[in-house]
């Protein structure tokens, strides 16, 4: 076990865990932040996507020992009131079906728009194809990203 100090959603949080513990489980089990989801445990589905220094990162394969001074943002920290343009666009297009993957989808989309405010369809496909949705909401996700890009 080792003590870590993490900067998450603008706050500093202390945890004492094994250095190999993925950030996903630090968030979910130790910090009671369940917005970041477990889907595959091997960075194949994107349900666990967070921002590490603003970049979309799969938290299920990211050990806490690798974080250093990097800043973490989770879906809870994107905005707590859905005021972020991507969250707003998700509501406008009523994207969710079961909703389980959508936190990860939103985090991938938000990171895309930060680095590329006017993405083409191909840019969106490239940035989003690591996020699986079994309900098949991909078309609405694309529309929502385009709506958010206009704001």
């Amino acid at each position: 076990m080792a003590k870590y100090s993490l900067k998450i959603n603008g706050k500093t949080q202390q945890v004492d865990v094994d250095p190999s513990t993925p950030i996903l489980w630090v968030l979910r089990d130790h910090l009671n932040m369940p917005g970041t989801k477990f889907g595959c445990g091997m960075a194949q589905c994107g349900a666990c996507t967070i921002h590490l220094d603003g970049n979309a990162t799969r938290s299920c394969v990211l050990p806490i020992s690798a974080i250093g001074k990097s800043v973490i943002t989770t879906i809870e920290g994107l905005s707590a009131d859905a005021s972020h343009p991507v969250q707003k666009a998700w509501l406008e297009h009523d994207v969710a079906q079961c909703g389980y993957c959508q936190g990860g989808q939103i985090m991938s989309a938000a990171a895309l728009l930060k680095s590329n405010p006017k993405p083409t369809d191909e840019d969106i496909d490239n940035a989003m194809s690591g996020n699986i949705c079994r309900c098949g909401t991909y078309l609405r996700i694309k529309e929502a990203i385009k709506t958010a890009a206009k704001k």
């Binding site: 979910r28 932040m33 369940p34 917005g35 970041t36 989801k37 477990f38 989770t74 879906i75 809870e76 994107l78 905005s79 707590a80 009131d81 859905a82 969250q87 998700w90 509501l91 009523d94 994207v95 969710a96 909703g99 389980y100 959508q102 936190g103 939103i106």
Partner: peptide, 18 residues
């Protein structure tokens, strides 16, 4: 609109996993 849409997009606990 989906009555749980807001909870989904802000990451509120909703699922069995949560």
């Amino acid at each position: 609109k989906n009555t749980e849409g807001l909870k989904v997009v802000i990451g509120k606990p909703l699922f069995g996993m949560d």
